[in-house]
């Protein structure tokens, strides 16, 4: 079969009432610029880690804000802290500090 580089996403139900939103609240409290995110994906588009792995900043923070934090630890460990995402973000999100705050919340620092 030809591979076109696309895959079919699995069905996903988000249970807002059950999900743990405290982590997102912590990160947003310490880096409120994340509220400005418009999910444009420029960050993931420029990210050297995204180019060669499944990690994407946009997706990660979106899932986190929905309380889908199962893979968060593994995801955030991919970041190289290079700072490309900050430079391309049209909304001035301090992406690196979002990453750092997630790391702090997950006791990874």
């Amino acid at each position: 079969m030809n591979s076109f580089g696309f895959e079919i996403q699995k069905d996903n139900t988000i249970e807002y009432d059950k999900n743990d939103l405290s982590l997102a609240a912590f990160v947003l409290k310490h880096e409120p610029s994340l509220y400005n995110c418009i999910q444009c994906g420029s960050c993931s588009g420029s990210c050297p880690a995204s180019a060669i792995s499944s990690y994407q900043f946009r997706k990660m923070q979106l899932l986190m804000r929905r309380g889908e934090i199962k893979n968060l630890r593994e995801d955030v460990a991919h970041c190289l802290l290079c700072g490309k995402c900050i430079l391309v973000c049209p909304r001035g999100v301090n992406t690196r500090n979002v990453i750092r705050q997630i790391r702090i919340a997950l006791n990874m620092n």
Binding site: A49, I52, R73, A77, H78, L80, G83, L87, N109
Partner: peptide
């Protein structure tokens, strides 16, 4: 601090030329 950069292993480092000078542009 915990990181996981194992995925970097997959980056292909071969060259199809033999340059005298290598130019590293860098992220910025």
């Amino acid at each position: 601090a915990e990181v996981n950069h194992d995925y970097l292993r997959h980056v292909d480092t071969s060259f199809n030329s033999s340059p005298d000078v290598l130019y590293f542009a860098g992220c910025m």
